[in-house]
Design a protein around this nucleic acid. Structure first.
Lengths: 166, 166
DNA sequence: GAGTGTAGCTAACACCGTTAGCCCGCGCAA
DNA sequence: TTGCGCGGGCTAACGGTGTTAGCTACACTC
């Protein structure tokens, strides 16, 4: 059978990333787990960046599905956003901290992930972007441990939700 | 005289970072610009991480001063936040994307940078954190080119300000 | 059976941060 | 003046990274 070595490599990369963070994701480590040496990996994958693009695509698809399932109301979306991101911190960061390789991503992926929030904002794109930024900001500051240790994150999320409820 | 080689190294690191991004900041490149080889740099600086801590401290101090100068009202703060960050994208990212090495930073640096926003929010810490997250989210998504090319960022900032104006 | 493509391998390159060990020259003390 | 320590430069090297070149062995086809 030998199901596609590329998807296998992406899976291994995801395991490594989620378990031990971005520094653990090396071509040699991936190859090791696939039972081969690093150079052989290049018979299946052109380079590491491509692998990361696949990882980002998978992450966005999964994340988008979670948001979609939360339905188009803002508090539920915020909760889903935060809980997925904190459950997959390295994946969230990978998919979010760098420019999107839009030309190498499946058509419509981005829009599909954004759709629930846009609907929750009644189609107001600017408002949706501001809300997205709020959620992303809260999540990424939390993931980077930027809030003081005594900060009440739930309360901060409530304040965020309150600002956008009006 | 030989003004402190450490501050000189930090200055060079900043130049490299601002000019060509984080990948350009290598110990060898810094040493080159100082007219020496990389190993000699270690006679003055214990390691690269320490250099980065100095860079972060300098960035936070400068950024904090800019915010302070903007005064404690939210629209002015938002404008100052965005314009400093976009003027120094790599520096902003460096100082913001990783956990703060709080134990190695000057006492009170963090609070001083946060003070203007806290005052603008009337001392409501949760609200201030939500507002900070909004600004940080907008900036970091903009810096990472995450908004669609046709997005009107000014309008998104207005929507953000409107949400927190009420 | 000859040939061809797939998929593994080792060796190597250029870079990274970092360490070990050498050596030169300056200041200071006897 | 002589000797000595040490600050501050150097080269060589280690182990890591992504990646390429070039070899080989197996399977499949004609």
């Amino acid at each position: 059978m030998a199901e596609d070595r590329v998807t296998q490599a992406v899976g291994v990369a995801r395991e490594l990333l989620e378990a031990d963070g971005p520094d653990a994701v090396s071509m040699r480590a991936i190859a090791d787990r696939m039972g081969m040496r690093a150079p052989s990996l290049y018979k299946h994958v052109p380079d590491k960046a491509t692998l990361e693009v696949h990882l980002i695509a998978a992450a966005l698809a999964e994340f988008g599905a979670v948001l979609h399932a939360a339905g188009p109301n803002l508090p539920a979306l915020a909760q889903a956003y935060r809980s997925w991101a904190t459950a997959h911190p390295h994946l969230y960061t990978l998919a979010t901290a760098q420019p999107l390789p839009r030309d190498r991503l499946p058509e419509g992926l981005e829009d599909r992930a954004a759709a629930p929030l846009l609907k929750a904002c009644g189609g107001d794109r600017d408002r949706a972007r501001a809300a997205w930024a709020g959620a992303h900001g809260l999540v990424s500051l939390e993931l980077a441990d930027r809030f003081p240790p005594d900060a009440d994150l739930d309360a901060a999320w409530d304040a965020f939700a309150a600002a956008f409820a009006a």
